[in-house]
Computed example of a mutant assay.
Amino acid sequence: MAKGKKPIPSLVKDQKLVKRRREQMIEAAVSLFIEKGFHKTTTREIASKAGFSIGTLYEYIESKEDVLYLVCDAIHQELEDRIQQAIQEEEQGIDSLQAAIQHFFQVMNDMQDRVLLIYQEAKSLPQDTLSYVLNKEVDITNIFEQVLQKGIDDGSIQLDPKEVKLMAHNIMVLAEMWVFRRWALAKAFTLEEFIEKQTSLIMNQIRSKKEASNVGSTSPS
């Protein structure tokens, strides 16, 4: 799990109110950052779009970088939560993996502008805060590592333990490909076709390893 979550100081002690105000702030900032970019957006614009004054805004954060941090954290948390929902009901690891892959690709499409926002603007965060944000990416990758390991444990997936981490990162990169290169890929594939083909590539690689292992185990000595 990501470590070192940054505490954002607030002058307001009511934590329910802090949560509600920051959620309003995040939604306002996301749309402005996507439209104008982090550097061209002012805290006054964020406050106005969120529906309160600039003075009120600074009761809940100390800087515009705090808002960007809250935005990145909220986006990553939504990604993580939506993937976890997709794999809770599946039993075998191989089924959980396929469901998680397909759902993750769909989620990345649904949230593509927000995902791009993280990659474009997170570099503006202080180094310690950036490290936390990057570790949230690792947390999402770890979900796929856990599903792969579940399949190894129940026998539905056969992978060298050294390949589990690489495969999990491959899944992440393939999903991000649609976000970063959809301008080109969408000319050749629908989203459904892209998901189907990429899922097949991943699953076929796992099946080929399993088949090769089975052949090896039945070969005469």
Rank of each mutant, 00 (worst) to 15 (best):
M108S: 06
I94L: 14
G93P: 06
M25T: 12
L97E: 13
D113I: 03
V173S: 12
S200F: 12
T56V: 10
E193K: 06
P9I: 07
S208I: 13
A86C: 09
E196H: 08
S217G: 02
S221C: 10
D14W: 14
E91A: 14
V138L: 12
A212P: 07
E27T: 02
R82S: 15
Y60R: 04
I46C: 06
L68K: 04
A122G: 10
A50D: 00
I118T: 08
T141A: 14
F189P: 07
I118P: 09
V107F: 09
K19A: 15
N142C: 10
G37P: 07
D66L: 03
L148N: 06
F180T: 14
I195K: 09
K165F: 12
V164Q: 04
A28D: 02
D160F: 11
T43A: 03
K150I: 05
D153E: 15
K49F: 00
G4I: 05
H169D: 10
I202L: 13
E62P: 00
A188I: 10
N142R: 10
N214P: 08
K64T: 01
E89P: 01
A100H: 05
Q102F: 09
D66N: 06
K13V: 06
K165P: 08
S217L: 06
Y119E: 05
G37L: 00
A74R: 06
K13P: 05
Q149A: 02
F189E: 05
V67H: 00
V107I: 15
E59T: 10
M25D: 02
L125W: 13
A99E: 07
L70D: 00
